[in-house]
Design a protein around this nucleic acid. Structure first.
Lengths: 206, 206, 206, 206
DNA sequence: AAGTAATCGAGACGGTACGTCCGGTCTTCCT
DNA sequence: AGGAAGACCGGACGTACCGTCTCGATTACTT
């Protein structure tokens, strides 16, 4: 889970460690199997036994490299839906923010969305997993959006006293809220409403 | 789960059902035991066996009246933290909204907050539970806030074209977002930021 | 279903007892239902709940009249296969004994035999049932056979020092032995072998 | 149940199976615990849960190696009362037969007898168990006695047309009959009566 | 070439909880 | 006073995964 121990051979004296090296093939098989199960049948079906069986791997091998079921799930999830945080900035704040929110919304359509909801759920009982979710998924997206906003502050488009971290919550939260509670559909229009409201508010101008 | 068939009407013949009536004492004992376990030790510890043992009740009796562990948990949760949706309206929109958000934030402090997070998690795999969460917890609070906003629209304080249901998401979502992801503390100040931003936005006025 | 009750009712002063009389109809329904289940599906399937459901009777009513599941089973069994103990004595000892053994063997063919085996099994954990089996089923048959033998002693056909009760065991035991262990088929020929051997032995005459 | 695949042969490749080998210690603990419970408290008390708890073993481990409660019970029973089938033949038919019957009768005294009765009972609903009882307990004893009789036939002491298998039933059945029905005590004298009657009969010699 | 050390597959193991079943008891109302 | 309905406790059932453990076999690097 914490990256592959950097077999890159920079240990001072001996380039490589003794013993049989880790099987990269097994690692891949595990992640593929886990991703299949997670996306297709849900987190509950992604049991360690099922993953091991499907990957043709023993349970011990999984536990060797990941500390918990949730850890496997996160890595498996990222394996599939990686690069939604890259934004091509156009300089149009509304457009760029909306684009990013839509990216996330679309990444949460269908099974993968269900999977993310289950990951967040699983994180409630697995601090390790929660950490990993925050650092590997949420934070990069928050940072990207924060940079957009900061540049808008610099350009004078946003009030200089705006609390940018709190704004990140206001921007992203509704997506996760609908993802988890499912009281309303999760569609592109939500992105527009969020951006418009956060920027201009709904109070009548005097 | 939804109480015993509403014995309200006393049709001459069918007023009461035959057989030994449900033990209200058992129902209470189950809910108390479940609430204790849920709040004190978390949802994972609130197993059916533990609840049954603590309540001095057989497992079958629980399964008789609740379809799943989650269902027991919701009822137990509400048993404890019932009336956070009653608002004393003052007519000051900012103040009333802030008050309501703070109520929820405070209800989510400490163990009960953890419990709610776990309930939302459990709801991911239990549609029945999700329904109940929405109808018994979320909706009443959304309705109360929506009424506040509608009156503000009527008074001309809010733009008449505002999408009130979507605003509900913008108002409440950040609370649940922080509750579940724990990337930032869940404190009163969040309520101020939410209300201020949703009403006035952060864009610089031209 | 069966006619009215006629509770006997010979209490000296007040012809009948107060309250609702026992329902002979219920008693019959219980025995019929129990017999059906016992013979058709085996003792294991003849649960109190199944009997009650099939008889359209409450469990308590069954417990009212029978102390245990086994007790119901015995009565149900006798309900069906009653009169195998009546012998028409011809005076020919071999013939009369053989006839009686064959009667029992035939009564133990098929499902009813299986049922009797299960009753004897159930009696291992239910002394009450064991008593009832002995007094209502075994003893009458032993007595009848013992009477036959006694008359043969009187006629001088049997050694006067024969231990008649022990002979009863030698005559009947092989039937129950095969019934319960099923190592050999339970057929009429067994009756012949038993009677012949018990009367004449297998030792070569000097 | 029948021991671990007879690892005796070491075929070059498939001599041992992969995976952690079965724990012989667990097997012994299970049989000891089961035997204790079976003999001391009866078959009804020998529940899988009780055996597992007493043996310090998980239920799954028991189910892994034995298909049913009865199967465990038989193995446990034999564990304790193994070698009652070895006979030291003296050549005196009456004496040798009587000795063997007495052996069995004595093995059935007290708790172990009760246990055997319960095993035979349990076999009524478990064909697997019935098979095992017949092959591992009854048959060896029948074979031993049959050999005795056959030699007596060869010596001319027994009628050559005697149906030896049927005689086995006549010899052994009364023991099991009394064991199961308990209408008479199971004592040594029964052995004498059986042997005497089967050899010489009770009919008066003409 | 032999030794050392880490990995891998297979799968047995103790443990916890699941959801179900039945026995026997009880409680309520109806007849 | 029965009786039907059915809720209740207790205890066991057989199953599912968990995470750990022991095997023998494999695969490198080190001497």
């Amino acid at each position: 889970m914490l990256g592959p121990v950097a077999t890159g051979s920079r240990s001072p004296a001996s380039g490589t460690r003794p013993g049989r090296p880790r099987s990269e093939q097994a690692r891949q098989a595990i992640l593929e199997a886990a991703a299949d199960l997670l996306i297709d049948d849900g987190f509950a079906a992604m049991t360690m036994e099922a993953v091991a069986a499907r990957a043709g791997v023993s349970k011990v091998t999984i536990y060797k490299w990941w500390p918990s079921r949730g850890a496997v799930a996160v890595d498996a999830y990222f394996q599939r839906s990686a690069p939604t945080n890259v934004i091509e900035e156009t300089g149009d704040l509304v457009r760029d923010l909306t684009t990013q929110l839509r990216r996330i919304i679309r990444a949460f359509h269908g099974r993968p969305g269900k999977a993310m909801a289950e990951l967040i759920s699983a994180a409630q009982g697995d601090p390790n997993l929660a950490d990993r979710l925050r650092s590997a998924w949420l934070q990069p997206r928050r940072d990207a959006a924060a940079a957009l906003l900061q540049r808008a502050v610099d350009r004078g488009e946003i009030r200089p006293d705006a609390d940018i971290p709190a704004l990140m919550d206001l921007l992203f939260a509704p997506i996760y809220y609908r993802l988890l509670l499912e009281h309303e559909p999760l569609n592109d229009q939500l992105a527009d409403t969020i951006v418009d409201t956060v920027l201009h508010g709904v109070a009548r101008r005097p």
